[in-house]
Nucleic acid binder design. Structure first.
Length: 416
RNA sequence: GUGAGCGUAGCCCAGUGGUUAAGGCGCCAGGUUGUGGCCCUGGAGAUCGUGGGUUCAAAUCCCACCGUUCACCCCA
């Protein structure tokens, strides 16, 4: 029997209340901040992700769903949300709109890896991006918006970690200083960190091994090596966050995995963190659009994984609004009543009343059991007696009261 | 890709070598030939993850594979 592929899952009806809840909060948030929806294809030219997310990492070899279609074109399942947004921005000339252009997306993304807590091969991301504006106030607004998102979901006890990782002018100098620092400890580094030293030195800073963390603690801080422009930008972000009363923790060891980030980076974490705990993160990526062939365009954004959010909602036992129940259930006895019931159900639905029609010629008892387990407020019962009077029995399932209603009036009573 | 734990009905799970694999939830039906929730009775539902091996005998022991969980790598 075929099963859902590894790292994928079905979202069953009782789970969908969480998804609807989070998606609803996300879209109303974006509406509040003037972000408009953008949907991009679920697969893209593989180069889009190879150019933007893959530098210096083994994402392409190991983690990306890359395949050739029947024409031989190299495609990749959407690996993340930001690069496609930038591609669309360039492709549709959105730089001709008043800047910044503010866009958001909710949709699946794919990574080929072994599943673990809150990480799946097909997962879902919500993200928003503001393109075409370098003002640090926008960084602050994006962070404030991220915070409001989690607040609106009822996720509390979160903290925001903030850092700046400089720009292409000042970061290389810092990386050199960092390498020098670590080369003094090379014999004490774990094998992974030895590889990082060559391939992705920023990642040295968040190795989980305690021995490596000791070395990271004494490492030079990137914020001491920022160029004057980056320094000013970073200070302004903090000033604006302060003005909006957004608490944050400066974390000089916060780096993000992808190359394309510049200046501001931030992550949102539960206070009590565990292995895969980060709920969302983002930052500025001032060089990304240019690297895709667009004009130099500064941009800043945020993304969060819906699975992790839902995991936390469940952990916190947050109250989630239930999906609406149908308004009424129609039970019938006998073929003649069944035919009439079908007609009534159709009419009621035309009037906007959600109706479940009994099926299968069950006993009345069985039909009412079904209505009960569906949690429906009203049962309509149609038998010979009601038919002969052109009427129907209306039963209030919670009070057990029932009365005979003329057929012509039933819609009005159910939906006055 | 690496390491560890776990796979028994739709779900939770008992069962560590010996008859027809036990129970709870849920499902279906009856108890009430026209009335649900509680209760009672009955029923359906399990290739014991898959394949191989050990043994007179395997859900139980061994091996491999698959899946899953957690962690690592990586992190979008």
């Amino acid at each position: 029997m075929p099963k859902a592929p590894r790292g994928t899952f079905d979202i069953l009806p009782q789970e969908h209340i969480y998804w609807k809840y989070v998606e609803g909060k996300a879209t109303s948030l974006c509406q509040l901040y003037g972000y408009q929806p953008l949907s991009t294809p679920i697969f893209e030219d593989a180069q889009l992700f190879i150019k933007t997310v893959a530098g210096g990492t083994d994402i392409v070899d190991k983690e990306m769903y890359v395949f050739a279609d029947k024409s031989g074109q190299e495609l990749a399942l959407r690996a993340e949300g930001t690069a496609p947004v930038c591609r669309a921005y360039i492709e549709h000339g959105l730089f001709n709109l008043p800047q910044p252009v503010k866009l958001y997306y909710i949709g699946p993304a794919f990574r080929y890896e072994r599943p673990q807590a809150g990480r799946y091969r097909q997962h879902h991301q919500f993200g928003f991006e503001a393109l075409g504006e370098a003002d640090p106030a926008l960084d602050a607004e994006v962070i404030e918006m991220a915070r409001r998102f989690f607040d609106s979901l009822g996720l509390s006890r979160l903290s925001i970690h903030l850092n700046s990782i400089g720009c292409k002018l000042c970061r290389p100098g810092y990386l050199e200083v960092l390498r020098q620092h670590y080369s003094g400890y090379i014999d004490h580094l774990c094998p992974d960190c030895k590889a990082r030293l060559v391939r992705n030195p920023l990642r040295l800073l968040d190795c989980k091994k305690t021995s490596c963390q000791e070395i990271a603690k004494t490492a030079p801080k990137i914020t001491d090596y920022l160029c004057p422009e980056c320094q000013l930008h970073f200070q302004s972000v903090q000033k604006y966050l302060g003005a909006m009363n957004i608490p944050f923790h400066l974390n000089p060891r916060l780096v993000r995995g992808l190359d394309y980030y510049t200046r501001t980076v931030f992550e949102v974490e539960p206070r009590e963190k565990g292995g895969q705990s980060t709920l969302g993160g983002g930052g500025r990526y001032d060089d990304l659009i240019e690297s895709l062939g667009g004009k130099p365009t500064p941009a800043v954004g945020f993304a969060a994984g819906l699975e992790r959010i839902i995991l936390n909602l469940k952990k916190q036992k947050t109250d989630i609004p239930a999906l609406p129940e149908p308004d009424a259930f129609i039970a019938y006895m006998g073929e003649e009543a069944k035919i009439e019931a079908l007609k009534i159900a159709s009419e009621l639905r035309k009037a906007g009343i959600a109706v479940i029609m009994a099926t299968g010629d069950k006993s009345l008892r069985g039909q009412l059991r079904q209505a009960n387990s569906l949690g429906i407020a009203y049962a309509l019962i149609l038998g010979k007696q009601e038919l002969s009077k052109r009427s129907i029995m209306l039963r209030d399932m919670s009070s057990r009261e029932q009365k005979i209603i003329p057929l012509a009036e039933i819609a009005k009573i159910l939906k006055p």
